[in-house]
């Protein structure tokens, strides 16, 4: 059931959660005690909101401001968990999973070079991670714009930061999770161990989420570009260090 996390997570983060949030926000009256509670929870985020977003600045209702912030900013770190999880699932399956299923040895005896094998182990999770993210973005666009069109009177998704995120940051974070997973996969024997290690790549984005909730940091274009550049550098390092220790001889010795 390797594909289950690849299916459940995107549906949860790009369909179920945004739909529930939209329905909840729009159904709570602005003068109700529940609304006051909600404002206290999100107060810091609202107070330090990015005013350079002209559409956000033009909004007058606190409900709409909050809904806009949640859809365009708060969901971004959640969304990034999709390529992270997809990348680590496919990468864990492609190495530790093959070891577990005992299919690896036949592959190591093929004419493929060590580098070709290593590259293939990187490319398949990378392509899967980016593809699942793009499909998820489409689903998210339908939900957010479906609700957004009635609430804001216009399409709000994607903004420029999201476009940059999809083409720059998503492949980078997929690379981060699979880099960790591939590196760990060659040292552990089960799919689960490798997959769990890859999930560590989620941690920086949990911090980002907390940062946004506290109103300290927002997922705007500059943050996305800088974060992407840092992660690409880490990816390059992980690719290099993983490739250095990658040899079929070493893998076979560990299989024996």
């Amino acid at each position: 059931m390797v594909w289950m996390p690849m299916l459940i997570l995107p549906i949860l983060f790009t369909f179920v959660m945004p739909l529930l949030v939209g329905i909840l926000f729009l159904s709570i009256p602005a003068d109700s005690p529940e609304f006051a509670d909600m404002m206290s929870d999100f107060g810091a985020m609202l107070m330090n909101a990015p005013l350079n977003d002209s559409f956000f600045a033009s909004l007058t209702s606190d409900t709409l401001k909050l809904l806009y912030l949640v859809y365009l900013y708060m969901f971004a770190p959640f969304f990034l968990m999709i390529p992270i999880m997809t990348g680590s699932v496919v990468a864990a399956d492609s190495f530790a999973g093959e070891k577990e299923r005992k299919t690896l040895e036949a592959l190591l005896h093929t004419p493929l070079s060590d580098f070709e094998l290593y590259l293939a182990k990187w490319l398949s999770p990378l392509i899967a991670g980016v593809a699942v993210s793009l499909v998820s973005a489409l689903l998210y666009a339908i939900v957010v714009n479906g609700i957004g069109l009635s609430a804001f009177g216009r399409l709000i998704f994607p903004n420029f930061a999201w476009i940059i995120m999809l083409i720059w940051l998503v492949p980078a974070v997929t690379g981060l999770s699979l880099g960790i997973t591939v590196w760990v996969s060659s040292r552990v024997s089960t799919f689960l161990e490798a997959y769990q290690a890859g999930a560590f790549a989620v941690l920086p984005f949990v911090l980002l989420f907390v940062g946004q909730m506290a109103g300290v940091l927002y997922f705007d274009v500059i943050v996305t570009v800088i974060l992407g550049a840092i992660i690409w550098l880490i990816d390059g390092f992980l690719f290099w260090i993983g490739g250095k220790g990658f040899s079929r001889g070493a893998i076979l010795s560990r299989l024996s």
């Binding site: 299923r101 005992k102 299919t103 690896l104 040895e105 036949a106 592959l107 005896h109 093929t110 004419p111 493929l112 070079s113």
Partner: peptide, 20 residues
């Protein structure tokens, strides 16, 4: 010359090593 060699060899390993 492992890559060149393995184009001309076939192997049945201890376990069938098939993708089930």
């Amino acid at each position: 010359q492992g890559e060149l060699l393995r184009q001309k060899t076939g192997i049945l390993t201890e376990t069938p090593a098939l993708d089930e």
